[in-house]
Design a protein around this nucleic acid. Sequence first.
DNA 1: TCCTGTGAATGTCTTCACAGCC
DNA 2: GGCTGTGAAGACATTCACAGGA
Lengths: 229, 229
Amino acid sequence: MSAGPVPDATVARLPLYLRALNDLTAHGSNTVSSERLARLAGFNAAMVRKDLSHLGSWGTRGVGYSVNHLEGLIRHELGLDRQRPVVIAGGGHLGQALCNYRGFRDRGFPILAVIDTDPDKIGTRIGDIPVHAPDDLPELVGDDPGVIGVLAVPGGVAQAVADGMVSAGIHALLSFAPAVVEVPVGISMRKVDFALELQILSFYAQRDETDAGAPVGLQLASDRPETGS
Amino acid sequence: MSAGPVPDATVARLPLYLRALNDLTAHGSNTVSSERLARLAGFNAAMVRKDLSHLGSWGTRGVGYSVNHLEGLIRHELGLDRQRPVVIAGGGHLGQALCNYRGFRDRGFPILAVIDTDPDKIGTRIGDIPVHAPDDLPELVGDDPGVIGVLAVPGGVAQAVADGMVSAGIHALLSFAPAVVEVPVGISMRKVDFALELQILSFYAQRDETDAGAPVGLQLASDRPETGS
DNA sequence: TCCTGTGAATGTCTTCACAGCC
DNA sequence: GGCTGTGAAGACATTCACAGGA
């Protein structure tokens, strides 16, 4: 029952456990062993047990974990008891794709608005999401500290847009911009860069080509692309 | 001049160094110190030096690294000397956004085709990318082991689509599907899941809310969202 | 017997601190 | 003096192995 702080590596895996638990619920399972959960989420049993022990010891020896209870526990830990509205900066192709992606709303992240500077777009809708001018941002965010900002803008303006979001009261940012973005202490940010992912893949693809036929390594470290089990 | 294998963590940072070096070239800088490169890429100087030492010792003490040379070195290490064609599975909103994203082609990843099962889409173009039927996949890939596959399909069909890509001869996959996808040994895969990123952000947002006003932690581990310096 | 919870061992990554070269 | 290259130390993460409860 270690109630200490949850390690970052564990936090990054909790959403994957949650996804597996959703599937189990849909399948009608009531309990799940660390072994089974590990297979469903793509890890190994010892890690599942260690991770879950950080949330408190709630499994039953000889049986496993209660799917329902575990799901609630993880949702609570991740702060998913409440909805977290999302504001997307950038109404380009990516912003449009995100607006039309149901996975956000379905998982408790309703999209509040798109912010764009293009006068032709302001006042229109993308999917059913309204497009607003940057000036509307503070009003949209209000004093809700739970709003998450998404940067779907070109790298060149990413820093400026991030600054605007932070001054509007946003405390958490997800950036798709291919640029280094700095945020003040106390603001959380995660980055996703498509081209960067391809470059990393390129490295391992090249390595495997030159290794052609050679025995394949077994590592499965965090930033390495997975290689089949 | 440690010529040992490059650690995975280092590989994941090389693209960021590369981006910084591109900026430096544009600015006309000929040399760069580990200190400066660290600031530009968002790390610290010791890590930059350690990372670069894995590529061989090519800096000049008292001066720094040659921007040009370092750029070539990293490009070579990442296998970016050659172009790597990309095939996108899924012509939905995300697939469309990726087709219209210039960052792929600009960085050496020309998009060869989109694969979709919708008869209305097959034969048309998204941006200037042709849409093909799944059956065309083997022909598109040919015997080029350098093609990268992108999964922009719903989670439910991701595994089947991945299997199809692998049997068509693709050895590297980037998956945007919110699902666990298994690939055979020797195939590299990286995953990006938008909703998962929001869930992780939610955790830290919640933590910071309850900490309101408390001293902010200083960690900057790999999977934690960055918090400003 | 089955499965969890956890200390100990192992492996990996990051930071420190300084020797050595320009 | 300035900066790189690197062993050593420290922090962190994962896996092992087994005690102990259901």
